[in-house]
């Protein structure tokens, strides 16, 4: 390394102090404003409807943003706009994997997939699936006998119990859903920020290491 190289002792501290102070300031400010910047779409099934909530990850709701719903083959089923609280709900037109896509302007986009299994049973939406009652009956009649009036009656009762339980569960799970949404909303942690900065300085170290070896 030539003698007059600025990399000699003291250069680091002398020339880069202002930047260090500036960086400290930035970290300090960001510690109180750990906000992130992206849109998040969250969707869940409640009763026979699908509810979606969309927000920027600083907590601001995306109002009047476009929501599109696609089925598993990529065919668009419906679309709509979020209200001022960033919410949008719809009745799924058929039982399939629903891909919900949020477009919030300026290149912001997020998607969320609800698997078909989470959607309400066919009895609740559209035309009923003819196979389903049969399956339920055969469950009650493992020996394959013809359904008796008693099993028919049981089936209706079971159907009703199922609905009541579902309703109660939805009610009980509501706070947990809210908590999940909030958790997802919390944004960036201090560890991630420090990790990123450490990464950058690691790259710097590698470059300087190879540089110094080449100089010898």
């Amino acid at each position: 390394m030539p003698k007059d190289s600025p990399l000699k002792k003291g250069w680091l501290s002398r020339a880069t102090w202002p930047s260090v102070i500036f960086l400290m300031l930035v970290i300090f400010v960001s510690a109180s404003y750990t906000f992130a910047h992206r849109v998040v779409l969250f969707a869940y099934v409640e009763g026979d409807k699908v509810f979606t909530e969309s927000y920027f990850s600083d907590g601001k709701r995306c109002h009047n943003s476009r929501i599109e719903v696609f089925d598993s083959f990529g065919k668009k089923l419906l679309e709509g706009k979020t209200n001022k609280d960033g919410e949008f709900s719809f009745k799924p037109p058929k039982r399939t994997d629903l891909k919900i896509v949020l477009t919030a302007g300026m290149g912001h986009r997020d998607e969320y997939t609800i698997p078909a299994g989470e959607l309400p049973g066919e009895g609740n939406i559209g035309k009923p699936d003819p196979r389903q009652p049969e399956k339920m009956v055969s469950l009650k009649e493992p020996n394959g006998e013809k359904p008796t009036p008693t099993s028919q009656f049981n089936r209706v009762e079971i159907e009703q119990i199922r609905l009541v339980v579902e309703e109660a569960l939805d009610e009980k799970l509501k706070p947990i859903m809210r908590l999940l949404v909030k958790r997802q909303n919390e944004g960036v942690s201090f560890i991630q920020v420090m990790g990123g900065i450490g990464f950058i300085f690691g790259i710097m170290g590698i470059i300087l290491y190879f540089r110094s070896r080449r100089g010898k």
């Binding site: 680091l12 020339a15 880069t16 930047s19 260090v20 500036f22 960086l23 930035v26 970290i27 400010v29 960001s30 404003y33 750990t34 906000f35 992130a36 910047h37 920027f56 990850s57 600083d58 601001k60 302007g105 300026m106 960036v188 920020v193 990123g196 900065i197 950058i200 300085f201 790259i203 710097m204 470059i207 300087l208 540089r211």
Partner: peptide, 25 residues
């Protein structure tokens, strides 16, 4: 290189500082 690294870090962190004015995020 050290100066570049420091400014890279500043840029990396700056995007976390959200400006709460205006219609969008």
């Amino acid at each position: 290189v050290p100066q570049v690294a420091i400014l890279t870090s500043a840029f990396f962190v700056a995007s976390l500082i959200h400006v709460p004015i205006g219609p969008s995020s």
